[in-house]
């Protein structure tokens, strides 16, 4: 077990180093990052001054080593645009993103687990079909479409809900729903399939045979076992989809989070911010994955044995 954890951690570190390296060199490959910043009315001389200011006159290898060294010291460089430490900028943004992510995951779990169970139990009736049709629809409608139309209806026409930032609880409603749509669809399907798998298993029959009430059988034995699958999906798929959702949803709702930051950084080519953003999110995803892996192993001893 300890060995397994250590191996997971080592793999995590290696993955991160590779990502940092790739991102760094890709950024340097694509030409001078300063072009975007030398906007209205700057001259070549100013460019030279700026290059010196950001240390861009050194060789790429120097910059790479300096960057790695900086990361070890917790220094991820200066934003081209804001000229202050990238880590500081990202730190300001991480809270709102996590809040939104948290509320989206909470909503997703609250809606999709019951729906998935219902869809599995009534798989052959119209209830199951209706739930699955809903899930398909949720999966098919891109979150920016949901968000755009919600804003039109609930904010512009009805004036019910605010659209800018994360000031109050009301501000969470539309972004959370828009972000959860696809997650709910995905998780409902996974829950349903996991439940279907479990429902056919021997131990379910045994439990029933023992005369346990059906609800107990389903909730205690069924859901608990299906939960393992659901957990792994949550860790892997959800983290990825949520990060993707964040990018669009935050841009639409002027949400002061990481996604909004990264979109503007991408548009204005503020590489240090983008680099750190990708690395930070990768770190989060890798960590979540590693934790899920470990949790998964703890929850299901058979895997532990298989993985060695």
């Amino acid at each position: 077990m300890t060995l397994y954890v250590l191996r997971t951690l080592a793999k995590m570190a290696l993955t991160l180093l590779t990502i940092i390296t790739l991102v760094f060199f890709a950024a340097r490959l694509s030409g001078s990052p300063l072009d975007t910043f030398l906007g209205d009315g700057l001259t070549e001389e100013d460019r030279a001054l700026m290059i010196e200011y950001f240390g861009l006159e050194r060789s790429v290898w120097h910059q790479y080593i300096a960057y790695l060294r900086g990361i070890l010291d917790g220094n991820f460089g200066l934003s081209f645009m804001e000229r202050r430490p990238v880590a500081e900028i990202v730190a300001e943004r991480i809270g709102p993103s996590l809040q939104l992510l948290g509320s989206a995951i909470a909503l997703t779990l609250a809606v999709s687990v019951p729906l998935g169970v219902v869809a599995a139990l009534w798989r052959d009736s119209w209830v199951g079909s209706a739930v699955m049709a809903l899930a398909f629809t949720g999966y098919a409608v891109p979150n920016f479409v949901i968000a755009t139309f919600m804003v039109l209806i609930f904010a512009f026409v009805l004036n019910w809900l605010p659209v800018v930032g994360n000031g109050t609880a009301l501000h969470f409603i539309m972004p959370t729903i828009a972000m959860s749509g696809v997650l709910i669809a995905a998780l409902t399907r996974f829950t349903r399939n996991a439940m279907l798998d479990v429902l056919g298993q021997d131990f379910m029959r045994t439990a029933r045979a023992k005369g346990l009430p059906e609800t107990v059988v389903i909730l205690k034995h069924g859901l608990r076992n299906a939960g393992v699958t659901v957990l792994s999906v949550l860790g892997l798929q959800i983290a990825g989809m949520a990060a993707a959702g964040n990018v669009v949803i935050e841009a639409i709702f002027s949400w002061p989070g990481i996604g909004e930051l990264l979109v503007s950084a991408a548009i204005i080519r503020d590489y240090p911010v983008l680099q750190f953003g990708v690395i930070a999110v990768a770190f989060a995803v890798v960590t979540i994955n590693a934790l899920t892996d470990i949790a998964y192993v703890i929850a299901d001893p058979r895997i532990r044995m298989a993985k060695g």
Partner: peptide, 17 residues
């Protein structure tokens, strides 16, 4: 406050934000 999207700015004006 920054509201980069035109549609959002107008909506924010309507909602009183």
């Amino acid at each position: 406050i920054r509201i980069p999207e035109t549609a959002s700015r107008i909506t924010a004006l309507k909602t009183g934000e």
